[in-house]
Design a protein around this nucleic acid. Structure first.
Lengths: 90, 90
DNA sequence: CACTTATTTAGACTCTTAACTAAATATCTC
DNA sequence: GAGATATTTAGTTAAGAGTCTAAATAAGTG
């Protein structure tokens, strides 16, 4: 269950996508333009993030808008803190 | 830099190792006995965890004792919380 | 409906990774 | 130092992941 999340976070391109989405929602195309790789590759990364439920999508006409879904982040932080004393807020 | 941590956490065997170490320190052999895979395979996982600095080791005579190193956990939790609002303690 | 734009899916290729067995290294005991 | 135990390293194999190009799907425009 947690595999997908950590695996998703393990790729730098995907973390960068998440950081961009943390600033503001963006369409797939807006995101893809930020990277030197093919659109199809970014699309693949978006699929991984979506499967891990780290992002959610909404169609907006021709575009598909991506936004962060913080639910799983919260669960993940809780997991790390509770199990491994990753008590970073102090 | 963060790749190693998330990649290390992406494997269920390695997460289980970390959970066991969260209970108490253990030797490589004690850990290996908990899994249905070959000792060498567990050793490989321990290597990954050590490279990610999630665990630290200390030789104790014939045995090698593994313990959790929480430093990187803390950095990781901080990263997730700051960037993605993974504010799980509320 | 043909045409364009936006995005995903499919198939191929390469690189990485997790597993195994066998061999190597390190420590302890006699 | 020979032999036993503990652990890692090497070499192999099979599966997974990231990338690409090309094709497919979906929506907007004339």
């Amino acid at each position: 269950m947690r595999d997908g999340v950590f695996r998703a976070l393990a790729d730098p391109t995907r973390r960068r996508i998440l950081e961009l989405l943390a600033e503001r929602d963006r369409t797939a195309g807006e995101l893809a333009r930020e990277f030197p790789i093919a659109f199809a590759s970014v699309s693949h990364h978006l699929g991984v993030l979506k499967t891990a439920r780290l992002v959610a999508t909404e169609r907006e006409g021709q575009h598909i808008r991506y936004r962060l879904d913080t639910t799983v982040f919260q669960e993940t932080v809780r997991y790390l803190m509770e199990r491994f004393g990753g008590d970073a807020h102090a």
